Computed example of a mutant assay.
Amino acid sequence: MGSAVHVAEFIVSSARLTELHECSALLRRTRKRAEEIVREAGALLAEAELSGDAERVLALRADVEQARQAYCKVLNAYVAICGRITEERQAIVEEQFARSSRHQGLSGVA
């Protein structure tokens, strides 16, 4: 019975890890696009500054700031997901090690 429970727990953990990887991939693509948007907004701002278009400069500065804030949110989410992936992997490895140690009669203390 215990073995079936361990298998089920491993399947659930693996599924969670797969979902986290999928979220990470989506956030990685979103992060790259957000970087592009910040660069593009910055280039437009620089162009407006060079042309001396004060009204456009003010509007584009607000756009650049908004783009940077959005990028920061995406980056923070990406970092959080990466941390969660690391935690999930560690939990799986620790459980596998503990199960292996129990089967081999090891106490886990070295």
Results as ranks from 00 to 15, higher is better:
81 I>D: 02
76 N>G: 14
24 S>Q: 07
69 Q>W: 03
98 A>I: 05
92 I>V: 03
84 R>E: 11
68 R>N: 02
62 A>C: 01
64 V>Y: 02
50 L>G: 14
75 L>A: 07
63 D>S: 06
62 A>R: 10
87 E>C: 09
43 A>N: 12
89 R>Q: 14
84 R>C: 06
45 L>A: 05
83 G>S: 15
49 E>Y: 13
51 S>A: 09
58 L>W: 09
22 E>T: 14
21 H>G: 15
48 A>S: 14
81 I>L: 10
32 K>E: 07
28 R>M: 09
77 A>D: 08
60 L>K: 06
85 I>W: 08
52 G>R: 09
73 K>L: 12
34 A>Y: 00
49 E>N: 13
90 Q>L: 03
60 L>R: 04
44 L>E: 06
56 R>M: 04
30 T>C: 06
28 R>W: 12
64 V>T: 06
100 S>F: 11
101 S>L: 02
55 E>D: 13
86 T>Q: 09
22 E>S: 14
52 G>F: 05
75 L>F: 06
59 A>P: 03
64 V>H: 05
33 R>G: 03
83 G>M: 13
28 R>K: 15
15 A>T: 08
70 A>W: 00
43 A>H: 11
18 T>Y: 10
79 V>A: 15
43 A>I: 10
25 A>V: 11
63 D>G: 01
73 K>V: 11
20 L>K: 12
26 L>E: 11
45 L>E: 00
91 A>S: 12
51 S>C: 08
51 S>F: 03
48 A>K: 11
19 E>L: 05
24 S>A: 06
72 C>H: 04
62 A>L: 01
20 L>D: 08
65 E>W: 03
65 E>Q: 05
36 E>F: 01
47 E>N: 10
88 E>W: 04
62 A>G: 02
44 L>T: 03
30 T>W: 03
39 R>L: 13
22 E>G: 10
70 A>S: 02
96 Q>P: 05
41 A>N: 03
96 Q>T: 08
31 R>S: 11
42 G>R: 06
77 A>T: 05
21 H>E: 15
26 L>Y: 04
97 F>V: 15
97 F>S: 14
81 I>Q: 02
39 R>H: 12
23 C>T: 07
30 T>E: 09
91 A>I: 08
59 A>L: 11
85 I>H: 10
97 F>R: 15
20 L>V: 14
94 E>M: 06
52 G>Y: 07
82 C>K: 14
59 A>W: 01
